[in-house]
Nucleic acid binder design. Structure first.
Lengths: 351, 351
DNA sequence: CTGAAAGCGCTTACAG
DNA sequence: CTGAAAGCGCTTACAG
């Protein structure tokens, strides 16, 4: 057995009891300056690392995290994925005395955000993990967390002018940029490219705008660009909406060579073109079941993924490292920008 | 505090001491059939899960894993990556009483494989993780492990007719298939495609042949294929070798539209074409520094990656789950087939 | 075949 | 300000 230094070893070297060592270790006062310095020196010298196992075994303390994200209507919904990540972290950190309370808000109803946020504050958690989807409400909530000095971490996306201990999210700009590159690579010299936003409140959904920005900038940066770029916004009520907007643009569907949809609703565009018997190259986001089916069918070419299960799992673990292990954690945790096709989807792992 | 069932709870319910409960828990005999059955029933009923923390804290037992893979000449070498994965697992499992001894063989010299393998057997490890690169020697080694009933797990690739408890590796066939799809998507209607093997002993490197197979079958399955496929094998001594082989095939370098190299030596092909001032689309494998540089420079278009650090890390953890936690582990652990471009490389994580 | 006791490294009152 | 002791859930000899 390779022996690690124990509290006891430090105590012996310092000629004190382990209780005193523990006091300087956890900085809970009641130690004379002289002995404190002496002990600290030995700690540094021996490079002492506490045994986390023994520590959480002995401690009866519980720590409570609250998680906050949109409610997933069913298993097929995107938001059921981060939920799984939370469950996994929950099971794993259970034996370390971590409890997790999950809270949800309705995507469509921002008042439910504020109501649930109030419940979270009442429950007095030690830390919060949240997906700041409703921008305005989320900012108000983080201000209250700041006041109460409750640390929080973001998943999925980021909010400006807030003070989280960190975030786990994908760079929206760069994912859009990559989508553009793929389309450029697949299209050859020239073609008609259609960017579609399928969203209710585009102005309150910052990451979709960033994806668009990255997408457009790719082509702007390209020296010689002979593609024709079109853009449309639809609310997501039926596929004929897309056809109508195309008509407004004076475009026949069969003229479209490539389509980029800025979120997981790419299936609506894919089905639209499928019904029209037109086959542009189509790129969108996220591995929800309907998208997977269309990918395998060849109606979607690429899905850009961001391991939402892992984001939540990692965020919880970062909170744990920060609060329990007292590690200094990395603040910016960018998720990889994964490219999924029908050829590699069967090997894609959530974690 | 949510209370988990403890040995003590079972003991009380059964009206015995915790020592006896421990005996049936670890199946170490010396218990009458009657009490054993009674206790077992209570265990099942309460769905008892041992507290791993307390268990490894109390146990002074050490468990030793041996790892075996090609020696990495330097940090830039592919094999330094799995090595990092091993280090990480080592640090993490240390407090659970796991020790790891690392052994290496020379890629070029198969006799070093056998010599080191002998050392591993002498050290009598509890389990072995190995990269079975030298096919013939590796098979002989696994036979000896089988005889001694030492469990082993593969990383990187798989060997037929062996009995590992599992493997963590990428499907070579499917990665080749995906490479073909990318080239097909990027090339449009027609083009000259060159497949290059850069390897010393191609017949002893099964996975390269599988990558080729997947690549070729993609085009065979395609209904209408107007691409022209060429193939060459070079030993990897200088780039002019590729030019010479092209001449032998009667091809002018500038006629080549796309290149697929079946391993991490893709940088040699990329540099070759760069020097010729020709810019075919190039796809290869693995994020070693020189490949990364060429990718960023635009001289390589895609790198297919397989998280080698993670493979080793995961394999060690599977051994731990199998031997220490006594979990039934998943045997086939296929790594994802990751697509890296200059646009997403900065966000790619090793784990 | 079974139980009682010591100990793993740490935390937590409590006594002085 | 400091120390001694009990306890977290489990393992490991040892006594009977």
């Amino acid at each position: 057995m390779v022996k690690n230094t124990r509290i006891k070893d430090i105590a012996i070297r310092a000629g004190v009891s382990i209780g005193t060592v523990d006091r300087v270790l956890h900085d809970r006062g009641e130690v004379s300056l002289a002995t404190r310095e002496k002990i600290q020196q030995i700690i540094d010298e021996l490079d002492y690392r506490p045994n986390l196992l023994a520590s959480s075994l002995a401690s009866k303390k519980n720590i409570v995290f609250a998680t906050f994200m949109p409610k997933a209507a069913n298993q097929d919904n995107y938001w059921s994925k981060p939920q799984h990540g939370v469950e996994k972290a929950k099971n794993q950190l259970r034996e370390y005395g971590v409890r997790i309370k999950q809270f949800y808000f309705e995507m469509e109803d921002s008042s439910s955000f504020s109501a649930e946020a109030e419940k979270i504050l009442l429950s007095e958690p030690d830390a919060v993990m949240l997906a700041p989807c409703a921008k305005r409400e989320a900012i108000r909530f983080t201000q209250k967390l700041d006041e109460r000095k409750i640390p929080y971490i973001f998943i999925d996306s980021i909010l400006p002018n807030t003070h989280p201990i960190g975030f786990v999210a994908q760079s929206s700009y760069d994912s859009g940029f990559l989508a553009a590159k793929l389309i450029d690579w697949g299209l050859g010299e020239e073609g008609v490219i259609l960017l579609i936003h399928i969203a209710r409140e585009l102005d309150n959904a910052n990451h979709l705008l960033l994806r668009e920005k990255g997408f457009l900038q790719y082509f702007e940066k390209k020296s010689s660009n002979r593609h024709r770029l079109l853009k449309m916004e639809v609310s997501g009520n039926g596929e004929e909406e897309i056809v109508r907007h195309l008509a407004d643009l004076g475009i026949n569907p069969c003229e479209v060579n490539a389509v980029f949809v800025t979120n997981s609703k790419v299936n609506q565009a894919a089905i639209c073109f499928k019904n029209l018997c037109v086959t542009p190259k189509i790129i969108g986001y996220d591995l929800i079941p309907i998208n997977i089916a269309l990918l395998k069918e060849g109606k979607i070419d690429f899905l850009i993924c961001q391991k939402p299960e892992m984001q939540a799992f990692q965020a919880i673990n970062l909170l744990f490292d920060h609060l329990v292990k007292k590690d200094k954690i990395k603040k910016e945790n960018f998720t990889s920008i994964d490219l999924i096709t029908r050829e590699n989807i069967n090997f894609y792992n959530s974690y």
